[in-house]
């Protein structure tokens, strides 16, 4: 990329130019500072009990303490493992079922209604039974997470495969393509942006799934730790864990977005349009 567009060269002229072009980043940081400072001041001025709500400084201290303790990493590791395993299993099953329904119309009439029926059952309501079936260990949390993750992936997969262009499919057919080749060459690629949208929703839901599972019955994990902090009225400690969970969710979401950019590279309108050569 030898040609530097005017927009690109502006970016290099310094932070003032950047502020001018992207004021929202600065404003967003400013908002955070104002809210945090306001929170701190109000809690201190009104002398609110730390059992009700802790000042940000106490939460920061609790967070700092957590980050220095091996026990905390053990709990975080367990929750992260539940999230990832549940996410991978749930999305794989979702992909397989979504692709199958997208490929064979008959399945949309026969299997899909049951998928929807399963989705209408609140996962939180069946979580206690899942704990009974799969025990207090990791397995039950992974199952609950997978159940929550599964649906958005299925729905988006089906929608994506249906979005495939009839004209592109006819083009492949004219070159004698089989059903399977049409899937491999057009339907899957058309579905990918949709699938990634589903996975993005799913990874955030996975965090919720793991915590719900741990709340209902567990021996370890951040959800378990959060319950302990709640019982001991450690509000600052609870908030510190919530922050860690939130960061986990954000990082996973960002990773998913980055992966999407790499896989669905043709959706990026970055490239310059070549001019007619004639």
């Amino acid at each position: 990329m030898s040609d530097v567009s005017p927009l690109r060269s502006n970016r290099a002229t310094g932070s003032i130019a950047r502020w001018g072009r992207r004021p929202e980043t600065g404003l967003s940081a400013l908002l955070f500072v104002i809210v945090t400072a306001g929170w701190e001041i109000i809690v201190r001025l009104l002398d609110v009990s730390s059992l009700v709500i802790s000042p940000p400084s106490a939460i920061a201290l609790a967070l700092w303490g957590n980050l220095g303790s091996a026990r905390f990493y053990y709990h975080a590791g367990i929750t992260l493992w539940e999230i990832l395993a549940g996410f991978v299993i749930g999305s794989l099953v979702g992909l397989v079922i979504g692709i199958a329904i997208g490929q064979w119309k008959i399945l949309e009439k026969t299997v899909y209604p049951y998928v929807v029926a399963l989705q209408t059952v609140p996962k939180v309501a069946i979580a206690p039974m899942i704990i009974i079936w799969f025990g207090y260990g990791l397995a039950s949390k992974i199952v609950i997470t997978a159940l929550i993750v599964f649906f958005p992936v299925v729905v988006n997969c089906i929608a994506g495969m249906e979005a495939a262009s009839t004209q592109q499919i006819e083009m492949l057919m004219s070159f004698t393509a089989s059903r399977w080749q049409i899937f491999r060459m057009v339907k899957l690629q058309t579905a990918l942006p949709y699938i990634f949208a589903g996975l993005d929703v799913a990874i955030v839901l996975a965090v919720i799934g793991a915590i719900v599972g741990e709340f209902i019955g567990s021996q370890a994990g951040l959800g378990n730790l959060l319950l302990q902090k709640n019982f001991s009225m450690d509000t600052a400690g609870s908030f510190a864990i919530l922050i860690v969970l939130s960061v986990m969710g954000i990082v996973l979401h960002k990773l998913m977005t980055a992966l999407k950019r790499r896989v669905v590279f043709w959706m990026e309108p970055e490239a310059t349009i070549a001019t007619e050569a004639t």
Partner: peptide, 11 residues
């Protein structure tokens, strides 16, 4: 090695 979006309609 160009991608379709980098080509004009005629190309």
């Amino acid at each position: 090695q160009k991608y379709p979006r980098e080509l004009s309609g005629g190309m």
